[in-house]
Amino acid sequence: MDEETIKFTQISALFSLILISIANTLITIGKELSEDFKNFFVAITGHHWTGHGVVILILFIVFMALGFVLVKRDIILKKDMDIYKLALIAIIIMAIVDAMIPLSLLVL
């Protein structure tokens, strides 16, 4: 794999991590709020957490492929972007969305 492809892979992995973190929180909250939504995940594998895991796996691959195309075409994700800043953004977003679960459990 050449240098450019490796960089694109790493950028798209971080991009996908940001999006699946958000999706993970939305799915968790959605399952708590709607029984029908929860049953959708149960229907996939027989247990809502395994269904949840499978959906996140598929989303990770899809978002990573999307990120790869975006960075290759220089759309939103730039070829010369600062990877450190992207990692920092990913950590901040993950911290915020993951903290929403215990906060919602404490407040609601």
Partner: peptide, 14 residues
């Protein structure tokens, strides 16, 4: 545990 279940998934992908 309710929090751990959730963080565990994003932590794995991290």
């Amino acid at each position: 545990m309710e929090t751990k279940e959730h963080i565990f998934i994003s932590g794995f992908w991290f």
